[in-house]
Design a protein around this nucleic acid. Structure first.
Lengths: 330, 330
DNA sequence: ACCACGACTGTGAGCGTTAACAACCTGTCG
DNA sequence: CGACAGGTTGTTAACGCTCACAGTCGTGGT
């Protein structure tokens, strides 16, 4: 910077002013500085800037299993929204998720000097890490349950499940079976909740829940079990599309026709769902909206210096009806 | 830090030494400092550290479309490997990929003070941005063609395609059709190359190529066209699994039986492939290995301060045989 | 002619850390 | 007993930037 100042015949402070678009710089001076910057190939050192301003214009993201469609989409949405707002994103992708891991990641990012942190905490154990947050750094949670001290942005899982279940009941199915996601996941809980609520509201029996772990294989295994009771089962709500694919595969192998014998509904609307055999009825989540809102809320927290309200933002899901669900055949 | 020094009755430099695990600190002194740090809840300011050491222990990643399975897995592999090596990762996820975008991202990250950059450049236009790199910052390319000035880490796409095609020829198919990926993508080119090479090596005719854009829908459309010529076609190599799903769907709709009438092979081995109807024969890429190697090479470049060799690391792919491919029927 | 004011520019300090060097202490060896 | 090595600690000066403040200059009003 000193070199530029010398080359342009001004003080370092004037160079700084040009860089920061301060209004009180004569146009001619600005040009001279800009030319010098260009000629010398000068790049300002953001680290030094961050040291004095105490703002790095970088946000941290703590996530888990960023290869799964849901988390990957969420992180992508967050990154885009952050960049639009002029912020960088540093990512920590946890291998195993637990209280300690999330806390370490938050500490780690804090130490790096990020201005705020988005924690994608889809599991109870991760969400619990948000209960007593280190003060001094704004944090928002995505899919983080009640979120403890942090604001929460989430998709209304229960509502999505309710839509899916009600859709099947509307088709005249006596009841709807459910293949759930893994124990610790809040999304799995929310979906069960909505499913039960819809059944209860219609005065239907609540069948035993089958367990899965989000993987197609676990759906396949659940599908085998359901196929074995094909005479009692006419509709299944599966907690995500990957497991739903496994269910469809098991049904195909066992000669159970979808939707003639059994209707299947998934959750997520992954790009593949439309081309399953048959195309899958499912619940779409707007991950872009989740990312945008989480950044909005986080920036608001940063501006308010932690004194912002711990609001809660719920994004509504949509039902996408395709060929895997149909009126009951009897 | 001054506070800690005062509390422990030492100089700030001794605190710094404790923090950096300098050997020449008396055990008793270290304990005293550590206790003071703990008591005051002190956290060292990495920004100030980065300013003076000129190392941020942060690496930049420039990527594109991080929701697709391939890029997402690559970025995940990079992130894990970087963290194992004690580095942070800042991500820039490009919306549209072109020379200017990649250059901007590299500049952006350089300005932020990253120690090195991994560019995931699966497209020709992105790879071309690597031809004249800004000096002064180590860069490695993943899937970046010849890579220009930067070392390249990639999966041997042509070899994967050769494996897939040879597998189908071994099954007695007269020739193998191909649904390619989008124009600008190097991976699409590599896969075509391998496919042609395998056909040429076997002295077979090279059929017209069908075009897709990686999406299931484009595969579906290609599948419809192939189904219309089902009597000439007995084997198809599709450039990725998502498009292969679309092809399978189109075949199902048109009553083309897989693999009885037509064998289908994909590329990527996404988690869903095993549960397609029928389960998909495909080519698996080891994204974890790509991530690890790219970080290895990048760190080597950083140590060598840019004077490292521009090596090229090729990761071999594996053929995974499932039910969608079978010996020719007739 | 004087003053006030705004536009523009320069000066010095300081952000929190590490590097380089100096200083001190202890023990060992000739 | 003195010198010297080596472990341990403290002092000072950067790193590259912004902030607060202090000019300087020209303009317009009284």
């Amino acid at each position: 910077m000193a070199d530029v100042a010398k080359a342009a015949g001004v003080s370092h402070q004037t160079v700084s002013r040009v860089l920061n678009e301060h209004p009180n710089v004569r146009a001619e001076t600005r040009d001279r500085v800009l030319k010098a910057i260009d000629r010398l190939g000068y790049r300002r050192n953001m680290v030094a800037r961050a040291l004095v301003t105490r703002h790095s214009r970088t946000l941290g993201v703590v996530s888990f299993d960023t290869i799964l469609y849901g988390p990957a989409s969420t992180v992508y949405g967050i990154e885009q929204a952050a960049r639009d707002a002029g912020y960088f994103v540093s990512i920590v992708s946890l291998r195993t998720i637990d209280r300690a891991g999330v806390r370490d990641a938050i500490d780690y990012l804090t130490e790096q000097g990020v201005d705020g942190i988005v924690v994608v905490a889809p599991q109870r154990s991760a969400a619990s890490a948000l209960e007593d947050l280190p003060r001094g750094i704004p944090v928002v949670a995505v899919e983080g349950g009640h979120g403890g001290a942090a604001p929460v942005i989430c998709v209304d899982q229960a509502e999505g499940a309710r839509l899916a279940t009600a859709h099947l009941l509307d088709f005249g199915h006596e009841t709807v079976w459910h293949v759930r996601g893994p124990q610790d996941w809040l999304e799995a809980e929310g979906r069960i909740e909505g499913w039960e609520a819809a059944l209860t509201a219609a005065g239907r029996e609540i069948p035993d829940v089958l367990s899965g772990d989000w993987s197609p294989r676990s759906g396949y295994e659940a599908g085998k079990r359901l196929a074995a009771m094909a005479d009692e089962v006419s509709a299944v709500f599966v907690a995500n599309d990957q497991m739903a694919l496994g269910v469809l595969r098991a049904f195909t192998e066992e000669g159970v026709r979808v939707p003639d014998q059994i209707s299947v509904v998934g959750f997520d609307d992954i790009p593949e769902s439309e081309f399953f055999s048959p195309p899958l009825t499912t619940v779409r989540q707007d991950f872009g909206a989740v990312g945008r809102h989480s950044i909005d809320v986080l920036l608001k927290q940063i501006e308010a210096e932690g004194r912002g309200e711990t609001e809660r933002f719920v994004v509504p899901p949509d039902l996408v009806v395709r060929a895997s669900s149909a009126p009951r055949n009897s």
